[in-house]
């Protein structure tokens, strides 16, 4: 469903990850781990097609991936139903009922998103994922500002998605209570160019560096 081959990606022009490889089969979830700054967000953005990989390939049809990051694209002046209805229309879907039910938003559908609590907003953002109808979820820290009950609710939503033949690639530090493989990104940290890592255009010296040419 999603296959990543020998992927290298950069943040701000500097390589951060290299030789990343994994596959994601239908019904499978993969959790990314690693210290802050290792490049989890960069990797997810690259897989979602927001960034160009430095090297390597991502094998997936671009119309199968649904991406969700820290910001949910929710408009405060629109109601819950209007927010969801818009994203459903963009993705050619019409029915927002199942997503509303799964994220326990039924009582809130006509409430403007401005009046939602942080956790309710997050649930709306996740319901947005469901209405895309896309099988591969790429989620960046999806449980930020969720309480324990909402985390469990979210875990069940992901489990239901997996059971329905979908798959998920998640960067998170907490246990979602789902069956998932874990990929630690620490071994994939990009090496400096001197040790076999990828060199950018400005990594090579000009031959006169040592002679104090900067001065």
């Amino acid at each position: 469903m999603l296959r990543v081959i020998d992927l290298a990606c950069a943040r701000g022009g500097v390589p951060v990850l290299e030789s990343v490889a994994f596959t994601l089969a239908p019904g499978e979830a993969l959790v990314l781990r690693g210290p802050n700054g290792i490049g989890k967000t960069t990797l997810l953005r690259t897989v979602a097609g927001l960034q160009v990989p430095l090297a390597g390939r991502i094998e997936a049809k671009p119309d199968r991936i649904a991406y969700a990051a820290h910001a949910d694209g929710i408009k405060a002046t629109l109601s819950v139903a209007e927010n969801l209805g818009f994203w459903a229309a963009v993705h050619g879907q019409s029915d927002i009922g199942p997503a509303v039910a799964a994220m326990n938003l039924s009582a809130l559908v006509n409430r403007p998103a401005a009046n939602l609590s942080a956790g309710q907003k997050r649930r709306l953002g996740l319901a947005r994922l469901m209405v895309t109808g896309r099988p591969v979820w790429v989620l960046d820290e999806p449980t930020v500002s969720l309480d324990l009950a909402s985390v469990a609710l979210f875990g069940r939503a992901v489990a239901a998605h997996l059971a329905g033949g979908g798959s998920a690639l998640i960067a998170t530090h907490i246990d979602l209570g789902i069956e998932a493989r874990v990929l630690d990104l620490t071994p994939f940290r990009a090496r400096p160019p001197g040790q076999g890592g990828i060199a950018t255009a400005f990594d090579g010296g000009f031959g006169d560096d040592a002679a104090g040419a900067f001065l």
Partner: peptide, 8 residues
């Protein structure tokens, strides 16, 4: 070149 060195 300098900012590349600093970033590295």
């Amino acid at each position: 070149r300098l900012s590349a060195l600093i970033a590295r």
